[in-house]
Computed example of a mutant assay.
Amino acid sequence: MTSRQRRRAGTGPGLGLGAGTTGIIIVALMAALAVVCALSVLFGSRAVTFDQVVYAFTSSADGTGGTDGIVSEVVRLRVPRTVLGILVGAALAVSGALMQGVMRNPLADPSILGLNSGAAFAVVCAIATIGLSTPAQYMIVALIGGAAAAILVWVLGSIGRTGATPLKFTLAGAVLGSALASLTSAIMLPRADVISTYRFWQVGGISGARFNLMAPVVPMLLIGFILAVFSARQLNMLALGDQMAAGLGVSVTRARAIAWAGAVLLSAGSTALAGPIGFVGLVVPHAARIIVGSDYRRIIGLCMLIGPLLLVASDVIGRVISRPGDVEVGIVTALIGAPVFIALARTGKMTEV
């Protein structure tokens, strides 16, 4: 096996860091995630001191009595918001890594491959026809739309004697995404009421987090994470090329199907919970590759740290710069992710997948 093949199979280093240095970076990322989670609980529409946060977690009050709303503010609003940020950030990052591995395309992510367009199209259709208006309704419809788009991309990418190939998947996702985006615009333009309702979901955010809304989707995300971990070794083999992977005993179609299923569960679930949030699934896997190399077992693990760190930090930034209002996290991730992605591309740091 050549050095190039070793890198593509996951044995090549990212920055050439030793195990000790990589461990220090992982510990630093964990510490940074803990810090931004604490900041997420501290900062909001009203000033809350550390002592008040401690009281909110230790008091048995329900936040409606003498606590002046502190318990309700912290526990009922900010904690679910932080938890949702962790879940969605990890799900989007891991989903992006899986899609890039399946497609062998460094630009693959849920938005580019049509999943977000499928969710958006379903939401717009439901708003226009049945008057969709509640977060729970958005979640169900977006989940169905994203999953349906993913299945359609798989079917279109598998047509033909050659079966499923990365190029066909990418083309199918791009074409389907463009078509659904056009149809979404065609439905919205004549309907001002649809545009008014849809625009709040379209931005992508976690400000409406509630544990009861998250609960139905969490099992699906857990299954997606399990499939991602299970697929990591197969993705390393697929990076060598279909023929080489088959020669090493990997069922190429089965490996792609499992990884794709995990990516769909994670991306559709996160889109259902928080709307279409861009750049997390695109940028985070590249950042992970720079640190740990091309081994998907390490990439997926690191994505579970960097994704939540980026999303929760973006949410905190959005709250700080516009207090007492909020800038939705989807806007902040775009403002952060776009320059980072351009910098990676210009400096040649977008490593092969």
Rank of each mutant, 00 (worst) to 15 (best):
M99D: 04
L107W: 13
T49N: 08
A32I: 00
M103Q: 06
G16V: 10
T271M: 12
T347K: 12
E352W: 04
E352C: 06
Q243T: 14
V35D: 10
A274V: 03
A28R: 05
P110K: 00
S196K: 14
A128V: 13
S267K: 02
S72C: 04
A255Q: 08
V27K: 05
P276L: 04
V41N: 01
A136H: 12
S133D: 11
L305H: 06
W260H: 00
Y55F: 11
A90I: 10
P219G: 14
V94W: 00
I24V: 15
V83K: 04
R76T: 08
T184V: 13
A261C: 09
A120V: 08
F121G: 04
A343I: 02
F200I: 09
N116C: 12
R254C: 04
P308R: 08
W260A: 02
W201V: 05
L39M: 14
E328I: 04
I226M: 12
N212F: 09
A56C: 05
D315V: 12
V332D: 03
I300E: 00
L238T: 01
I127R: 03
G20N: 11
C37R: 04
S267F: 01
I277N: 03
A34H: 07
L84E: 08
A287V: 05
L15I: 09
G157T: 08
V203A: 02
G163N: 11
V94P: 01
L107E: 13
I331S: 07
V332F: 06
G160A: 13
A147H: 01
G208W: 05
A122F: 10
P110Q: 02
L42N: 05
A257G: 02
G348F: 05
D68L: 12
I226F: 13
V284D: 00
A47Q: 13
V312A: 09
V332I: 15
R4G: 12
P13Q: 12
I223C: 13
L156K: 08
S196E: 15
D68R: 14
S45R: 14
S95C: 09
D193A: 10
S158T: 06
T49M: 07
A108H: 14
G114H: 01
G63E: 04
P166C: 02
I24W: 13
V54I: 14
M188E: 14
A338F: 03
A257R: 00
S231I: 00
L84S: 07
I195S: 10
G16D: 10
M304A: 15
M244V: 11
R81K: 14
L152K: 02
M214H: 08
W154P: 03
F43R: 08
L107F: 14
V283G: 03
A174C: 12
S231D: 00
V217S: 04
A334G: 15
L221G: 08
R298E: 04
